[in-house]
Simulated assay, not measured.
Amino acid sequence: MPTMSPPTVRTSRLVHKRSASCDASPETVRAVWRAADAVCFDVDSTITPIEGIDEIAGFCGVGKEVSEWTKQAMGGNLPFKTCLRERLNIIRPTRLQTETFMKTHPPLLTEGIQELVEALRARGREVYLVSGGFDFFILPLAQLLDIPAENVFCNRLMWYYNGEYAGFDEQAMTCDNGGKGRVCGYLKRTNGHQQLVMIGDGSTDLEAAPPADAFIGFGGVVVRERVRREAKWFVNGFGELTDELPPVDGDDL
């Protein structure tokens, strides 16, 4: 199947909604973080230093062709579903390739995320992973963090009976622009969360607030200029977030 070449124009013609964090003060975002009853983390370049789709593209021998599309997707310059579809049309990963990739590339966590998730759990916070990546890559990371599969919202590859690539689930909330926001809204409606925070490195994370009550930009792996500029609270490591949490049951930590 022929694929589009990534555009050479770097300026976006998309109109982005302002996030709640754009209008809030840094102090407000910190206050929401301290009081949050739910936290949603992006995955690639956030809880893991790896961009999963770029890594499997390299494994399949098409890394250079795919990486430019990833830059466009993370920068918010093109519809996310378009970038996702075109990247996968280049890679066309088979079931065997994904299984082999995971055997040879064990899951890797970003420094400080395990301690932060444990600190959130100790305070009774619910933790979710919300990603435009794929379940074969993300679920092993969730297991390392003891996050149940039902708290993971991501995309799903599909294969024909012979294991050849057949596409992806285009009904998943996370496969299109605004998908992470839809997940955040769904979690608030379904689970009754009153203060939900989205944390991530990309424009799709930034745009999840609202309905997320606050957005925190993460630059511990890579700094996206738009996110750094628009996030009212931008951190360079998870330790900054752990340090901001209130004591457990009033005890000094």
Score class of each variant (00 low, 15 high):
81 K>L: 13
158 M>K: 15
74 M>A: 01
207 E>H: 05
219 G>D: 07
55 E>I: 05
93 P>F: 02
223 V>S: 09
243 D>R: 13
174 T>V: 09
241 L>P: 07
55 E>S: 14
201 D>Y: 08
190 T>Y: 04
87 R>A: 03
152 V>C: 13
117 V>D: 09
232 K>D: 12
109 L>A: 03
64 K>Q: 14
57 A>I: 00
176 D>G: 07
203 S>D: 14
177 N>K: 13
223 V>H: 10
112 G>E: 03
245 L>C: 04
102 M>I: 10
47 I>L: 12
189 R>M: 10
246 P>G: 00
2 P>M: 10
88 L>H: 02
66 V>L: 09
69 W>C: 07
29 V>E: 01
169 D>R: 02
184 C>K: 03
151 N>M: 03
168 F>G: 00
70 T>W: 00
148 P>S: 10
39 V>D: 02
162 N>K: 04
25 S>H: 04
130 V>T: 13
141 L>I: 15
217 G>S: 02
27 E>Y: 03
188 K>V: 03
177 N>V: 13
142 A>K: 11
109 L>C: 04
61 G>N: 08
13 R>Y: 15
227 V>W: 06
104 T>A: 13
71 K>Q: 14
23 D>L: 14
125 R>I: 15
5 S>H: 13
157 L>K: 01
55 E>G: 08
128 Y>Q: 08
230 E>K: 12
221 V>G: 02
187 L>N: 02
188 K>F: 00
126 E>T: 15
178 G>T: 09
123 R>I: 07
111 E>C: 05
250 G>F: 03
190 T>H: 13
154 C>K: 04
59 F>M: 06
131 S>A: 08
203 S>Y: 13
59 F>L: 10
251 D>K: 12
121 R>H: 14
132 G>L: 05
176 D>S: 14
132 G>D: 07
185 G>R: 02
37 D>H: 00
238 F>A: 06
48 T>W: 03
162 N>A: 00
175 C>A: 09
65 E>Q: 12
31 A>F: 04
119 A>W: 08
197 V>Q: 02
69 W>R: 05
164 E>A: 13
137 F>L: 12
91 I>R: 11
207 E>N: 04
102 M>D: 07
31 A>P: 01
55 E>C: 09
226 R>E: 14
150 E>Q: 15
146 D>Y: 08
81 K>Y: 11
157 L>W: 04
115 E>Y: 05
190 T>S: 11
72 Q>F: 12
184 C>D: 08
82 T>Y: 05
83 C>L: 05
38 A>E: 06
191 N>L: 12
